[in-house]
Each structure stands twice: as structure tokens, then as C-alpha cells.
Design a protein around this nucleic acid. Structure first.
Lengths: 227, 227
DNA sequence: ATGTTCCAGTTAGAAGCTATCACGGAAGCT
DNA sequence: AGCTTCCGTGATAGCTTCTAACTGGAACAT
């Protein structure tokens, strides 16, 4: 019983290291062949052990992918947090947008792990939604406060009455609407870009992204149309 | 060799029917379990034959999925064409948006087959890009003509110089930009909605979609900010 | 009506995957 | 040292895609 208060035993440290190594190989595989092609067997071979050994570290393939999704969320939240910290509060929307695009382009398959095609049966664990809330909070914080005399559009009124999300955040309805627009519009451009739907069209997607961002920032003074 | 000019032999008709039946089962499977879970074996069993029999009709799994993608594109293009025909030219953006959302909600996995996570190795066949062009043309046709005195934003100027896409279409740069915004913004909302990223947030996604559409239509008079 | 050709569908089998089980041995704890 | 815990192995079941060889019957030709 001596030193039962040890925070990490050697075995725990070894386990954590192997788990991390497994994830590392998994990321590499996902980046090159996509998440659906992830093979525990192949990972085991790359690590020099036999297939069933991995089941000591992950219950099954789904648990590994779930952890990868969790890590991806965590990584995006960290990138947002860093971008927020680097820029002043209330003026960091551009910084957030840039961080998002940089993060997405760095590893498209990681982006799709979060925002890509969902598997019908799969349900994300609760803590990922907590991280998603964190991301949304960073986004709401970065939105400039709406002018007090701004008129409230019908959709903003609807949002004001249905804000179970962001219930803790003291954001005006116009801010909620802007945050949603930021999310959906930039995701729209990014997702199509990463999926290659703009390839061969000739124009610079980065400029489209920037233009959409400019639209979002320009609307800071005057809230979106009748939305 | 007699009657080689016969348009369809009985055998060809039989083949076409079986191929259609296979696709029908494939769609059903995709709708319930996603494209990655599509199993030729399961389809064969549902049709009362053994697995390898399907290889008489499709070279491999990829060819079947490719044909499903082709059909999905075709279906979306037809939906667009119908929506365009039902509304006046130059005023049908709202009709197109409604058709798009209806089409997407009818079978989310079909939508993801086109706009979802891409498989890194996979390359869509050339004719799908032809259908994609058809879709884009319908979209450009539906966009109202920009006022002649409208100023040209920097991004619109860039588009004017890089329009290898839509080279055949007599659309003004502002129209190209609007079509892109229509595509990316509505896809942004739809894709997040279908993936379930709004579930639990409390508000009505249909209203968000409508609000984004209103923004796009309101900008018909005054082109998007500095984009 | 009688070949002849062609083709759909079968079974068998290779190679791959996930996942479970029982075993041997090494590492850590007392 | 002795005991326990747990890692990694090989064997196995069941699934998948896909190939190969074979059979039976339909369509076609004479």
C-alpha cells in the first residue's frame, strides 16, 4: 500500500505512451486515406505488434475514432482560444476566421472528422458537445457588441426566444445571429473547398473566403438584412 | 448477328432492370447506414442471390457508388431544373433555395454523397462535373441581373478575370459572386443541419435557412459589402 | 428442330478486416 | 522471493470484397 497516492504508475505512463503512439499512426492513416479506411490491423503492423494487441488500449475501432474526434475538437478549441487571446476582445472575428481556415487546411480530414458526413448510428459523447460550447463561446466573445439602437429582425427575435444554447452568454440577439452566420458561411466555403468542389473553377478560394469574411465584418455596423 | 441494329435486346433489358434493382437496394442501405456501410453482400442476399452474382452487373463496389453519385447529381440537377421552370427566369433564387433544401432533407445521405466528406483517393468521373456545370448554370440563370451602375468589388474583379467556370455564361461579375454566395451559404446551413450540429440548440433551423436566403435576396439591390 | 454460343448464377477460395479467447511470460508490488 | 497484474501472442469466428472455375439454361443460328 506504500505510496498509493502516486499520480502515475510506470504502467500507466507506458499505457498512455502507447495510446498516444496509436493515435499518432491513426492520424497519419486518416490524413492519407480518410477515416473510413482506418485499420487497427495496419496500425498494429506499423507499430510492430500483432492486431489483437491494440484491443488492450482501445475497446474497439469506434472508441479510437471517438478519441480522435475528441482530440480534433480540443485542437480546434485551442486554436480558437489562442486566436482570441492574440487579438482584442470584440475585434477578433477576423483572427478567428483566419485561425479556422489555417486549422482546416492543415489537415482536411481532421476537419471532416468533426464537420463531415455523419455516420447515422454514431452519437458523439457528451464532452465533445462541451468543447463545442467552448468554441461557440469563443465565437460569441469575439463578436462585436451590436449598437443599442439596432432593430431586431424576425429571426433575431426567434433566436432571443430560443437560446437554450448560449443561455449563459450575455449576447444580444443580433450577436447570436452574427455568430451563426460566421459559423455557417465560413463552414460553407471551407467545406466545399476542402472537398475539392472549387478545383478547376479557376478563381482563388482564399479570396472567396476573405470576401465572405468581409461581408460578415461589414455587417457589424448594420445587421444582416431582414434575417 | 441478325438484327444488330436492335436498340435493346431482352438480355439488355434484363440487365438494366437488375442494375436498377441493385441501385434501389443500395439507396435504401445508404439512407439507413451511410455510404461507407454499403455492402454488396447484403444487397445480394436481399435480392435472393449469392454475393458474387452482383459482379456481373458492377465491376466493383466503387463503380456502384460512382453510379449512385452520378444519379444523385442528376437528381439534384433535375430538381433545380424543375424549380427554375416553375418560376420566372431571374426571380427564381428563392425557388431554387427551397428546392435545394427540400431535396437535401428528403435524403440526407444522398446529399452527403455529393457534398460530404471526400475519399482522398477517389476522383469523380468527368460527366459528373458536366452535371455540376448544369447545376451552376441553372443557378446563374436564376440570379437577377445586377444594376448597370453597380460598383465592382475587388473580389468581383478577381472573378471577372478568373471565370474559366461559367465562361459560356453571360453573367456579370456581381452575378458570379452572388451565385457563389448562394451556393456556399446555403450549403453551410444545410450541411451543418443534416449533420446534426444544430440539434439541441433550440432554434428552428428552417428559419436560419430562410434568414440566410433573405440576406442573399436583399443583396440583389445592393451587392455584398466589400466582398 | 437441332446445334452452338453466350451468359447469369453458383460454389470454392484468397486476402483483408474487426473482435474474442486462452495462454505464456514479463513487469511491478508487497 | 512470491504474488498479482497485465501485455502481447496465436488461434479462431464472422464479416467483407473480389477472383476463378463450373453449371445450367436462355437466346440465337442453321
Amino acid at each position: 500500500m506504500a505510496t498509493t497516492t502516486r499520480t502515475t504508475t510506470p504502467r500507466e505512463r507506458y499505457r498512455a505512451q502507447i495510446r498516444a503512439e496509436i493515435k499518432q499512426h491513426a492520424w497519419q492513416q486518416i490524413a492519407t486515406a480518410g477515416a473510413s479506411a482506418l485499420s487497427l490491423n495496419a496500425i498494429a503492423k506499423q507499430m510492430g505488434m500483432s492486431g489483437p494487441a491494440l484491443y488492450r488500449y482501445y475497446l474497439n475501432r469506434d472508441e479510437l475514432i471517438t478519441e480522435l474526434i475528441r482530440d480534433a475538437y480540443r485542437s480546434l478549441a485551442d486554436a480558437f482560444r489562442a486566436a482570441s487571446a492574440a487579438s482584442g476582445s470584440g475585434t477578433g472575428l477576423g483572427a478567428l476566421a483566419h485561425a479556422l481556415r489555417h486549422w482546416a487546411l492543415a489537415d482536411p480530414q481532421r476537419y471532416f472528422l468533426i464537420y463531415g458526413t455523419p455516420v447515422p448510428g454514431y452519437h458523439a459523447p457528451d464532452d465533445t458537445t462541451a468543447i463545442a460550447d467552448e468554441i461557440m463561446t469563443a465565437l460569441l466573445d469575439a463578436c462585436p457588441a451590436a449598437p443599442a439602437d439596432a432593430s431586431v429582425s424576425p429571426f433575431e427575435a426567434h433566436l432571443a426566444e430560443h437560446r437554450t444554447w448560449a443561455a449563459d452568454h450575455p449576447a444580444a440577439p443580433a450577436t447570436l445571429r452574427r455568430a451563426l452566420a460566421f459559423w455557417t458561411r465560413l463552414h460553407g466555403v471551407l467545406s466545399l473547398e476542402l472537398a475539392g468542389h472549387f478545383t478547376g473553377m479557376g478563381f482563388d478560394v482564399g479570396r472567396l473566403f476573405a470576401a465572405e469574411l468581409q461581408d460578415l465584418l461589414a455587417a457589424a455596423g448594420s445587421p444582416p438584412g431582414r434575417g
